[in-house]
Design a protein around this nucleic acid. Structure first.
Ligand code: MN
Ligand code: MN
Ligand code: MN
Ligand code: MN
Lengths: 219, 219
DNA sequence: TTAATTTGTTAGATCAATCTAATTTTATAC
DNA sequence: GTATAAAATTAGATTGATCTAACAAATTAA
């Protein structure tokens, strides 16, 4: 069994690898807010457990086993978030912190029951894919709203990062997953967009916001 | 904040104090399966945090603050067990192990949501009282089935200890909380009882079993 | 009431997870 | 291509939670 601490390292490494390719000790250190020497020594320990490939001064890589373990933790995290939203009535902005703790619970039955009660969901409340029982993730390819053009009609499918502040910002504007947007205009100057949706006939979204919203075009 | 380890000591101390009055280092040590010197040093730490009264060679006692903390952990434990049974479909024999982990989650909202969804239950699936939001327990006074006499009609209200084996034994005989029993006979020789209930016209229960079942008489 | 047993404490070691300070290696800038 | 800066490692200390061995106090038995 891996400790809660080890699990958090593995998960952070997995997430960084997926968004940036190679992962340096420095990046992992910043991401976990743990000093570099501590990270180095943990990497050696995880290497001894065959969860990471570690060589001095080389980028960090998870082994196949490491990726599987990471996937299983992320599965527990995302099932929990979905359960909290769908079965317990939490808002999508409130679930990450709780899931960060619940993901470490050791009880396959507990999470399989969640999965079953939820009807085997494919994504979490933020649109991120839920890994399967073997820790495998089926990556969904969406584009950023910021990459779309005036006249496009799109559906919001996921948020790139899910900080409570950002999600509350979206709540305040009735922006949520599944919503259809029409892009009316893109400001060349700062990349901000005018969009319309639901009862909102014109709403301006900054480039920062548009880069965090993942969408798919609809015919 | 108290660590998970500290929480487990406080809870064990609380439970032992309630069933045996005074608690010795030796008993706490056995109950937690942790060696006595470790327990002694943890007691000193908890004393520094004003959670236990500690004096060398004297029995261990929780402070008022310690009892409150213990009550709050037990509240989380029992709400979790109730939630697992009522909202997730687990059997009463399967929930203790999971609750043992979930009780350490730090999220008042999470547990208040459980409480609300459950309609503010007064007891857990084993009939034990759920402490209130201040950690206070309202003790219910039941008698042991073993203290009843032939002719008595009683209702099963709680089980004294809830090991999975004992609960599965009860499952196998359709014995569950709320069930009404009629005592047909008590064997003077070994204290075993013949009882009838539901579709079971005669079932024999050993003294050991009768001492674990808490009942109330019905008119 | 002394001796034996049980209970509890002290001392000192180990392991996990963290840190700071010093050093080394790699990358970047001039 | 050296000098400077950034990144990574090594060394050594700290804290929490545990252990064993040795010793001391309290209880029980003879
Ligand atoms: Mn999350
Ligand atoms: Mn976590
Ligand atoms: Mn329990
Ligand atoms: Mn516990």
């Amino acid at each position: 069994m891996n400790s809660q601490t080890e699990e958090n390292y593995i998960k952070a490494l997995f997430n960084l690898a997926n968004e940036k390719g190679e992962v340096s000790v420095n990046e992992l250190s910043k991401s976990l807010d743990i000093k570099m020497p501590t990270v180095t020594s943990m990497m050696k320990k995880l290497a001894a457990k065959k969860l990471v490939h570690y060589e001095s001064y080389k980028p960090l890589r998870l082994t196949e086993k490491g990726r599987r373990e990471a996937g299983l933790i992320i599965r527990k995290h995302r099932l929990t978030e979905m359960f909290l939203v769908e079965k317990m009535g939490f808002g999508w902005e409130a679930v990450h912190e709780i899931a960060e703790q619940v993901e470490h619970i050791n009880s396959p039955l507990f999470f399989e029951k969640m999965d079953e009660l939820l009807g085997h969901p494919k994504t979490d409340p933020h649109g991120s894919p839920i890994p399967d029982i073997n820790g495998k993730i089926e990556w969904l390819v969406y584009e950023k709203l910021s990459a779309c053009k005036p006249g496009d009609k799109v559906r919001i499918c996921a948020v790139l990062h899910s900080s409570a502040e950002f999600l509350k910002f979206l709540n305040n504007r009735d922006l949520r997953l599944g919503l259809q947007l029409r892009i009316k205009n893109v400001e060349a100057f700062d990349g901000s967009m005018q969009v319309s949706y639901g009862k909102h006939s014109v709403e301006t979204l900054s480039l920062t916001v548009c880069e965090q919203l993942l969408v798919e075009k609809i015919s």
